[in-house]
């Protein structure tokens, strides 16, 4: 475990048209670690995630990213092209809705291989091999490589989106409710895949979800959000088994257990 965070949010506040989506949020993300962010809909989880990924400008506060060479970047001060370079090469972002992260009219293989192409890989055979490999990793039939992605079911599209984000082997992966619409068995496989990415490839993962069972298995640390604020942060099992804040206690008490 490296002791320097890969990404740090320092007192981040995001306001839109009079409403405050997140308020004074500070958190750190480390290589090899899954950070879970939970809370009810409208708590500001997705806004925070988009802000960490540079897509939403904070009204106050800073987000700092340490690149592979150890240089720090205040990401909201970067030029558009510098930010694009980071988000293509170093980061992956899996959106809640597959249509936000995919091109529905091109093939599954094309969707998966495109980020590699953008990073400069032009050999057709390598692109196809990589697409095939990552489709298989997310338990999709590699024979469907050439089928347009709109012909896939929602859960399968979500897996194509994950494969598209893994193909460049990012250092930092943002996941916005990635397993929401998936069958239980596929969800388990994806959770295991994400866990392996973190532990073996030292990928840092920020996972936004409302599913406490998912964070219990996957997240090392957990932040609980309510009305835009982080009300509690800590080791995941501690936050879930001995929640301190009134809202965390309500959230945990409402969990369905098998």
């Amino acid at each position: 475990m490296d002791d320097r965070p890969l990404m740090s949010a320092d007192s981040v506040t995001c306001r839109f048209r009079g409403t405050t989506a997140c308020r004074d949020v500070s958190l750190d993300v480390y290589a090899g670690e899954v950070l879970g962010i939970v809370g009810e809909s409208g708590a500001g989880k997705s806004t925070l995630l988009h802000c960490l990924a540079g897509a939403v400008q904070p009204s106050e506060g800073t987000v700092t990213y340490a690149d592979a060479k150890g240089h720090d970047h205040a990401i909201h001060g970067l030029s558009e092209s510098a930010l694009r370079q980071l988000s293509r090469g170093d980061w992956g972002f899996v959106h809640q809705s597959p249509y936000d992260g995919l091109r529905p009219h091109i093939s599954a293989g094309g969707n998966v291989a495109e980020p590699l192409l953008r990073c400069g890989e032009t050999r057709y055979a390598s692109l196809r091999a990589a697409a095939r490999h990552w489709l298989a990793e997310v338990e999709l039939d590699p024979e469907r490589l050439d089928d347009p992605v709109r012909t896939f079911s929602g859960g399968m599209q979500q897996r194509v989106q994950l494969a598209r984000n893994l193909v460049t082997q990012p250092r930092l992966l943002f996941l916005d409710e990635p397993t929401g619409g998936l069958d239980v068995s596929v969800q388990a496989r994806l959770l295991d895949l994400i866990r392996q990415l973190a532990s073996e490839l030292e990928v840092a993962v920020v996972l936004v979800t409302h599913d406490l069972a998912v964070v219990r298995l996957l997240a090392h640390r957990l932040a609980v959000m309510r009305q835009g604020e982080v009300v509690e942060q800590g080791v995941t099992d501690q936050v879930l088994d001995d929640p301190q804040a009134p809202y965390s206690q309500l959230l945990v008490a409402s969990e369905l257990r098998s």
């Binding site: 475990m1 002791d3 480390y30 388990a188 959770l191 295991d192 866990r195 219990r216 298995l217 996957l218 090392h220 640390r221 942060q233 800590g234 080791v235 501690q238």
Partner: peptide
């Protein structure tokens, strides 16, 4: 939290009565 996780990784084991795994 990060220190707690490091202690659990290298120093402190806990055998509970329940198996909770992926």
């Amino acid at each position: 939290p990060r220190k707690i996780l490091a202690v659990r990784r290298y120093t402190l084991g806990y055998i509970s009565q329940f198996l909770r795994v992926a």
